[in-house]
């Protein structure tokens, strides 16, 4: 059905909300454009703001399979793209030795044997011996899928270079088999925590989406979607408490995922309202460093005061 971009974007927002992912306009626009232009999205932002979750939700929304490639140092093409099954190849050569004899039976001289061998196709380097890894899988599937390349900043620069061909042309060249081009272009989502600067070449090929910590109203919406059993009062207090925490000088600021965890914890404890003791006891759900806990302990009374009103 012909629709304007605004409508499509709204539809994406709604669709995502159905899967309990509350997204800002910016995020929905990014997904819309990625689909329209067949461009990958590079998502940056502090940990725990829902970067990976976006890919999961996109897969659910478009009803496509999610292929996930977790990056780490030393990840290379044999793990990410494809590999020949060496063991199988070795085994098959042993088994096929006798057949070889038959083929070569009666051949005179090296030249003839060789030409007889050459007349067979290259069976050992064919699809049967090819082990495809997530990147190749994403390109070869005929239904299309969502490819999540998680924490691309953790990988080596060489790997980044490998991604360039795949992301701009949606194809890979396998020397033995030729070029494999995607029939249905996958929706590609890359995430990065900025532990190292991503190369300009890669950035250039992507839509760049930065997801910051959400503001209070958006965070309340998210909590509502994720933890629907929470009561209104507690939700408001809890969000404003976390928002207050983010203004402090902490080693690791609590992200949305921590807020959600905390909300679940509080419900488990049957809390109807936030108070000092409760906050003190459950602080370790929000904060992941002992130093941070110590800093916040002192601030709790004032934080509680502001968040209750």
């Amino acid at each position: 059905m012909p629709k304007g971009p605004q409508d499509s974007i709204k539809a994406i927002s709604k669709g995502f909300a159905k899967h309990n992912y509350v997204c800002s306009n910016q995020i929905a626009t990014a997904v819309y454009l990625a689909n329209e232009l067949d461009k990958p999205i590079l998502i940056e932002g502090p940990p725990g703001v829902g970067k990976t979750e976006l890919a999961n939700t996109a897969a659910l929304h478009y009803k496509k399979e999610l292929l996930r490639l977790q990056c780490y140092e030393g990840l290379d093409e044999t793990k990410a793209l494809y590999e020949w099954r060496y063991g199988k190849q070795l085994l098959y050569t042993q088994i096929l030795k006798e057949q070889m004899q038959e083929v070569l039976d009666g051949a005179k001289g090296l030249k003839e044997s060789l030409s007889r061998l050459m007349s067979f196709e290259d069976i050992f380097f064919s699809e049967d011996f090819l082990e495809s890894r997530p990147l190749l899988q994403a390109l070869t599937s005929d239904k299309g899928n969502v490819l999540l390349i998680d924490e691309v900043d953790k990988s080596d620069e060489e790997f980044e270079a490998l991604l360039l061909e795949i992301l701009s042309e949606f194809q890979v060249s396998i020397p033995e088999l030729g070029i494999r081009k995607a029939q249905v272009k996958p929706l590609v989502i890359l995430t990065s925590n900025n532990s190292r600067e991503i190369g300009d070449a890669l950035k250039r090929r992507c839509l760049h989406l930065y997801i910051p910590f959400p503001d209070a109203s958006l965070e309340r919406e998210i909590i509502q979607a994720r933890v629907p059993e929470i009561n209104e009062n507690l939700k408001i207090q809890l969000v404003s408490f976390v928002q207050g925490l983010r203004d402090l000088d902490l080693k690791k600021l609590p992200a949305i995922s921590e807020t959600i965890d905390w909300a679940r914890t509080l419900i488990l404890l049957n809390a109807k309202e936030l108070n000092e003791d409760l906050a003190k006891e459950t602080l370790n759900v929000l904060l992941k460093h002992q130093q941070d806990v110590e800093v916040v302990q002192k601030e709790i009374p004032s934080l509680i005061k502001t968040s209750i009103h």
């Binding site: 971009p5 605004q6 974007i9 306009n25 910016q26 454009l33 329209e36 760049h208 989406l209």
Partner: peptide, 21 residues
């Protein structure tokens, strides 16, 4: 694709394509 009409939309899209940090 999206035109110049919707300012908010324009800003969102341009911010996805042009600045990268």
């Amino acid at each position: 694709n999206i035109g110049y009409e919707d300012r908010e939309l324009l800003k969102n899209t341009l911010s996805l394509t042009l600045p990268k940090t």
